[in-house]
Amino acid sequence: MFPARFRYEAPHSLDEAISLLRDGGDYVKVLAGGQSLVPMMKLRFATPDMLVDINDVPGLAYHRTDPDGTLRIGALCRHADLEFSSLLPGTQPTMAAAAPLVADPLVRNRGTLVGSLCHADPQGDWASVMLALGGSVIAQGPAGRRAIPLAEFVTGPFENTLGHDEIAVEAVVPKALGTRAGGYLKLERRVGDFATVGTAVAIETSGGTVVRAGIALTGVGGSTIAATDAAAALAGKPLSADSIAEAAELAASAAQPKTDHRGTAEYKRHLVRVFVSRILGGSLSSTTGSSTTGSSATGAAAERAA
């Protein structure tokens, strides 16, 4: 597989990278982990004139928590950094559940969360997770920095609202209003496969009441779907079997799946319902109030059998 001709630049600072984007012409692309962009180039689905490789830019490989609990993920933080992070378990159950389900271990060593958000693949896992958590993206361009809430960042399949001369430098998960619970469930045909269906659920409870809820869906629409009605059905009351059933039903109706080689629309919609109830059912039965439900649905039966 031989990509079309392109110019390659590997700047050593953000300013330099931004100037290259600004002056580089019509079709310039940032290269982060390369796990989406390079496959597209090798198939010649993407034929950029220039790549601006940001891997040599120092200070982007972090993820850290602010004193108030805000989580910040730098543009060069790899999926694997999150998978093995000690910051996520306990405080970020939805992220902790999703991290090991993104792609396969090889891809996770290179690919980045921020790159995945920018790529805006409707089958990308991180966009759902960040949407459910109410996250945002920090963009930096010639005019400085701005925060873009995820709901406004991903506008369609493979479309985001970055300016052509902007780099996404960081993703941000706001501090929790209570205790976080939730999880991420994904049906994949095998490890490394994109989701047939992925479901991200994030709730925050305080004093037995759900004070914030987010539900987002992967792979069941033209882009990542925020199931806002489903989330609203949970908020402002204690989690109960009834509210879970209602949220699951609303999430299923928010899905806009299509029948394809991964399954029928009906099946995918059904899975959304099952996954939302499984994640929330786990939260309900968990005594700590913060539980992690994450597994590719493949293996679920075996787990139960064990």
Binding site: L187, A301, A302
Partner: peptide
């Protein structure tokens, strides 16, 4: 094997 009745996923035991 075990088949998950809700999802149709099956695992080899």
């Amino acid at each position: 094997v075990e088949v998950d009745p809700e999802t149709g996923v099956w695992d080899v035991l």
